[in-house]
Structures are given as C-alpha cells and as structure tokens.
Amino acid sequence: MKVPKAGVIAAVIGLSLTASACGGDDDQGTLAVGIKFDQPGVGMREPDGTFTGFDVDVATYVAKELGYSKDRIVFKEVLSNDRELLIEYNEVEIVAASYSINDKRKAKVDFAGPYFLAHQDLMVRADDPTLTKAEDLNNPAKRLCSVTGSTSAENVRKNLAPKASLLELGGYSECVVALKDGLVDAMTTDNSILAGYTARKGNEGKFRLIGLRLSNENYGIGMKKGNTELQVKINNALRKMVEDGTWEAAVKKNFGPDYKYETAPAITAGS
C-alpha cells in the first residue's frame, strides 16, 4: 500500500496550485496548520466542515498566542507519511497531527513540545474474546491493520507481532472499516486515537481497547528546520496552555471521562 515517492511529490505540487483557493501561503495573514481529518477526538473534519479534536484545540490555542484568530487559521489535511513533505514544500507552517517526536523525523523537521503523551495500544472488536495481549497476534493467520508511515507500523514489524499479517492503509478510518467488516483482527495506533474511535457516535459497543502500553508517543508540533524563533514562541504557548488549565480541559472534552490520561509532559524540544 506504499505510495511511490514521485506520486506523493506530485500530489504536493498539485496542492500548491490550489493553495490560494484555500487560504494558503499566498494569502497573507493566515496560518496554515496541518492536522489529521480522520481521527475522532484528535483531529477530525466533521460533516459540516468544522474541525474538532485535541490537536485542533492545541493548534487553535497556539495560533492565538502567535497572533492568529480562529478565522485566520487554515487547516489542511496531512497523512502520516507526508507530514515532512508538506512542511518542506511550505504547504503548511506547522503540523499538529498526532505527530510523535523521534530522531528520524527530527532529522527532517524541528519540533516544539511535546504537549501530550500517548501509548500504542490495540483495538479489537468488542465481541472477540481471543485477543487479550500483543502476543495473541503473533500468528500468520492473524491480520493487523496500521497506517502507512506511522511509528505504530514500524513497532509492529520490529517488536509487536512479527509473524502477523500486517495490512497498511492510508488512513485510520480505513482500518476501522476493515476491523468492523472482519477483514482484520485488530488495529494498532496510539490509545488517544483509538479511544476517539470507540467513543465516536455509531461505534458505541462495537470495539474495545486491550489497554496496553506498547510505546511512548510524545506528540510535538512540527515546523521547518531552523525556525528557532517560531519554536520558542510555540513552546511558550504550550506552557501557558498547561498553566491556565486549558490543556486539561481540552483533554477531558475530547477523550471523555473514562480516558486515563497522564499529566502534560515537560517541554524539551529546542532546549
């Protein structure tokens, strides 16, 4: 399911041709922010065209601190495997899209944060009692879904279930459909994303999280390398968001009362 690099670059070039129509870089006075469009509770484009989710709330708060009101933010969709490209090609100025900080990504972009700590988990169908731990998937007969370019997919290959049949799709919503239809036995990504899907209207009672902590995912805000001034400003905004209580309120609003979140991580990027 991997997209050829040339195809990705062509898509990025195509986006640049329409940037002015959606408030892109040619439209002075706006801030282009990359988010996910298909992650309930994290980053979601609703049917009415509005945007919801924790990353959306964080990006909106940061934008305000940078001097941009809500009507001057332009949200653009990013996929897990094209976030660095969109930053490099100036399609977005910052990315807040369940963007885990790691050394491979830091070689291409700079980060502010982290602003949230998630853990990789497994989501299965609620009526399937056979999967209770990661090792239950380590069988060629078991099919696991993840998203191309995600750190979860890499962890699956190396550590989680090397014998499982891994299906990589372009978006998390596609994995949810595959799980619901019985095409895969489980789906893996961050527990924050999975919690959003289990709580999504229409999904109540259909899925369950196993409750694992297979990795530590520190979400950061990505930007072009070398923009130290912007990095410092965003870090200051994130600290203020935690201190004034907005961060905790956003967590509870987006992930629900049953989500067991951890306190905001210490900001280390750029320090």
Rank of each mutant, 00 (worst) to 15 (best):
D48G: 14
D48W: 10
T50Q: 13
G53R: 02
F54C: 09
F54E: 03
D55Q: 08
D57G: 08
V58Q: 03
A59G: 07
T60A: 15
Y61T: 14
A63W: 11
K64T: 14
L66Y: 12
Y68Q: 13
K70H: 09
K70Q: 08
D71V: 13
R72P: 05
I73L: 09
V74E: 11
F75K: 04
F75V: 05
K76G: 14
K76V: 09
E77P: 12
E77R: 13
S80F: 01
N81F: 10
D82F: 00
D82R: 00
R83M: 15
L86R: 05
L86P: 01
I87P: 00
E88D: 08
Y89D: 06
N90G: 07
E91M: 11
E93P: 05
I94L: 15
V95A: 01
V95G: 00
A96S: 15
A97N: 06
S98P: 03
Y99D: 01
S100V: 03
I101N: 01
D103Y: 07
K104M: 01
K106L: 02
K108D: 05
D110F: 00
D110V: 02
G113V: 02
F116I: 12
L117Q: 06
D121K: 03
L122C: 05
L122K: 00
V124M: 07
R125E: 11
A126G: 07
A126K: 13
A126Q: 11
D127N: 10
T130W: 07
L131T: 09
L131I: 15
A134L: 09
